[in-house]
């Protein structure tokens, strides 16, 4: 079920506070955060974030297209390292 419209988008208050502070001071340091469920709002555009993926922080520069998505959508939590060596036999080059 999707979130009630009455409540408005979920924006982590601490992330918001940091972004607004950056706007005042004009600094452009990445905002480090664990808040993957925080919605990207227009205020975040052209700020940089470091989003935790469970292991490391992934850098994300926010553009207008990303508004409305969640921060976590841009920091994948799983790594896929190709399936076994069957393909090697089929294409023997190098």
């Amino acid at each position: 079920m999707s979130r009630s419209i009455k409540k408005g988008p979920y924006v982590d208050s601490k992330v918001m506070k940091k972004v607004l502070k950056q706007k005042e001071t004009g600094s452009n340091e990445p905002v480090k955060t664990w808040s993957r469920s925080c919605t990207i709002v227009p205020e975040f555009v052209s700020h940089t974030f470091m989003i935790h993926n469970g292991k490391i922080f992934q850098k994300l520069f926010v553009t207008d297209d990303m508004v409305g998505h969640k921060l976590g959508e841009f920091a994948p939590t799983r790594t896929f390292r190709a399936h076994g060596g069957v393909k090697k036999k089929e294409t023997p080059h190098g």
Partner: peptide, 12 residues
């Protein structure tokens, strides 16, 4: 195409 270009989870 938009989702692919911003590389969000659905785009991936």
């Amino acid at each position: 195409a938009r989702m692919k270009s911003i590389a969000c989870y659905r785009g991936i």
